[in-house]
Computed example of a mutant assay.
Amino acid sequence: MRKLSELSNEELRDIIPELMEWLQDGNWPIARSVEDLLLRFGEELIPHIQNVFKTKDPQWEYFMLTGLISRLPSRYLIVLKVDLERILKNPTEDEMFEELDEVIVSLLKKIQ
């Protein structure tokens, strides 16, 4: 992890998709540190987060919602509002099973 934190934003930018994969399980010890690195990028993360939603991997979505996304400033949550509302109003069966709606409701309250 120390080597990653020594990389410049330009160097990190090239590996954002790979770093996002480290957030597939919020229980991994490195997950929080990777979130810290990714938070440097703010709005640039939006397309990468949206790509996670497209994977239809509800566990990854859960850890993104409770980790990185919950740590983003409200101004970025507004950009994700359509994606969050889709999961809330039209969840897949797996998203329902993971109870993503509970997490999303609290995120949407932050931007109302």
Rank of each mutant, 00 (worst) to 15 (best):
M1Q: 01
M1L: 00
R2H: 10
R2Q: 09
L4T: 08
S5W: 13
E6T: 06
L7P: 02
S8L: 02
N9S: 11
E11D: 13
L12H: 09
D14F: 10
D14A: 14
I15T: 05
I15Q: 02
I15S: 05
I15M: 08
I16S: 07
E18R: 13
L19T: 10
M20K: 05
M20G: 03
E21P: 01
E21I: 06
W22G: 07
L23C: 04
Q24Y: 14
Q24K: 15
D25M: 02
N27T: 12
W28S: 07
W28N: 10
P29S: 12
I30A: 08
I30K: 07
A31R: 04
A31L: 03
V34W: 03
V34L: 01
E35W: 03
E35H: 04
D36V: 06
D36F: 05
D36G: 08
L38G: 08
L39I: 07
L39W: 03
R40I: 01
F41Q: 08
G42A: 10
E44N: 06
E44H: 06
L45W: 04
L45N: 04
L45A: 02
L45H: 05
I46S: 05
I46M: 05
I49Q: 04
I49D: 01
I49W: 01
V52T: 14
V52S: 03
F53D: 08
T55W: 13
T55P: 03
K56A: 07
D57I: 04
D57A: 10
E61W: 00
F63H: 11
M64R: 01
L65K: 01
T66H: 09
I69C: 05
L72N: 04
S74V: 14
R75L: 10
R75W: 04
L77R: 06
I78F: 01
I78E: 08
I78A: 08
K81D: 08
K81I: 04
K81R: 15
K81Y: 02
V82W: 10
E85C: 05
R86V: 09
R86E: 15
L88Q: 13
N90L: 14
T92R: 12
T92N: 12
T92P: 06
D94L: 14
F97P: 00
E99N: 15
E99K: 13
L100M: 04
D101T: 07
D101Y: 12
E102D: 14
V105A: 13
S106F: 06
L107W: 05
L108I: 10
K110D: 00
Q112T: 03
